[in-house]
């Protein structure tokens, strides 16, 4: 009986996570367009619903009813596989993400995470690496020069930025003496990691921007010079998959930044519920992502490589050495 309850609980949590992750892009697209509009002294969507609130629903209906086009010369199997490969990993990663300690409902303690892995951080980085395949397959299978160029760029960008990102979090792991995300948050109960690891956070955040393929590192899409990059040939629901994946990764990067460097659900000064603290911090980082998008232009390809290898990598290495020396 207990096994059934535990299993049911896990299934319920997974279903809830999937539902939230699938639905969250709707308000996020609205927010992104609104913020974009106001930064550019426009109003953003205004006509569908109150202040355009129903605009994402209209867009969703439009995407679902559009023709799902596959180019004649495309590799059909890879073309169909790529959106799924891009969509699944960000969803899988959230299994390892803790959103809080636990709450008691009807006398039973319910933990606010699906599983507490002792190598949670490693799992996150390993699974999120698979997401690159979606982008590369998508670009390759479409058999279009823009898509191939976009996915080639992405390939190089992902590999060069995953390395400093991995090094940047090592400092956090050294401080917490654990790779479990739960332990990392618990270790920040008094002082957040950002105090000890400002350089680590900087490297992590810049690399995270590149991983999420957001401006100023959105060379994979590069509307201006590549059409739409790797998803040039995608339309309809498959294109929506790529969009949802992009928002999920943006969310994931924000969540990771909060967990690793900003104390997770540990509050400061104002006593709010832990989950609310967590959500507020994540919302702030999501806002920063959007804010960056409408402030900075895109980096050139050689600049991107120079930042990755000549700035971020040495910085993250130096961060590890200094953390190690100070720790000894």
């Amino acid at each position: 009986m207990e096994l059934v309850v535990a299993l049911g609980l896990i299934l319920f949590k997974v279903a809830l996570l999937i539902a939230i992750l699938l639905l969250l892009p709707l308000p996020l697209t609205w927010l992104e367009r609104k913020i974009a509009g106001h930064i550019q002294q426009r109003m953003g969507p205004m006509r569908v619903g109150w202040h355009g609130l129903l605009q994402p629903v209209a867009d969703g209906v439009k995407l679902l009813t559009k023709e799902d086009h596959i180019p004649a010369e495309a590799d059909r199997f890879l073309f169909k596989l790529a959106p799924i490969l891009a969509l699944a990993p960000p969803f899988v990663v959230f299994v390892a993400i803790p959103f809080g300690e636990s709450v008691s409902v009807l006398g039973t303690k319910i933990t606010l995470y699906v599983s507490n892995m002792n190598v949670g951080l490693l799992f996150v980085f390993a699974v999120i690496g698979i997401e690159v395949y979606g982008v590369i397959f998508g670009g390759w299978a479409a058999n279009s020069k823009y898509a191939v160029l976009g996915s080639l760029r992405t390939c190089a960008q992902m590999i060069s930025y995953e390395i400093p990102m991995g090094f940047a979090v090592i400092g956090v792991v050294m401080l917490a003496q654990s790779m479990s995300l739960l332990d990392i948050v618990r270790a920040q109960a008094n002082v957040w990691n950002i105090v000890y690891q400002p350089v680590g956070f900087f490297v992590f955040f810049v690399a995270g921007l590149a991983e999420a393929q957001r401006i100023p590192f959105d060379l994979a899409e590069a509307e201006g010079d590549l059409g739409a990059g790797f998803h040039t040939e995608y339309s309809g629901i498959r294109f929506a998959f790529f969009m949802v994946s992009e928002y999920a990764i943006m969310l994931l990067t924000s969540v990771l930044a909060v967990i690793l460097f900003f104390g997770g659900w540990n509050g400061v000064l104002v006593p709010l519920p832990p989950l609310l603290w967590f959500v507020l911090k994540v919302a702030f980082f999501v806002y920063v992502f959007i804010w960056f998008r409408f402030t900075f232009p895109r980096y050139r390809y050689d600049q991107l490589m120079a930042i990755g290898w000549k700035v971020l990598l040495p910085l993250s290495m130096a961060n590890i050495i200094i953390t190690g020396v100070a720790f000894l």
Partner: peptide, 18 residues
């Protein structure tokens, strides 16, 4: 500076004529 500028613009009145 750029971030501060765009943040300031975000709270300025839109020039859109609806």
């Amino acid at each position: 500076n750029a971030l501060a500028l765009t943040f300031g613009y975000m709270f300025s009145r839109p020039v859109t004529m609806q």
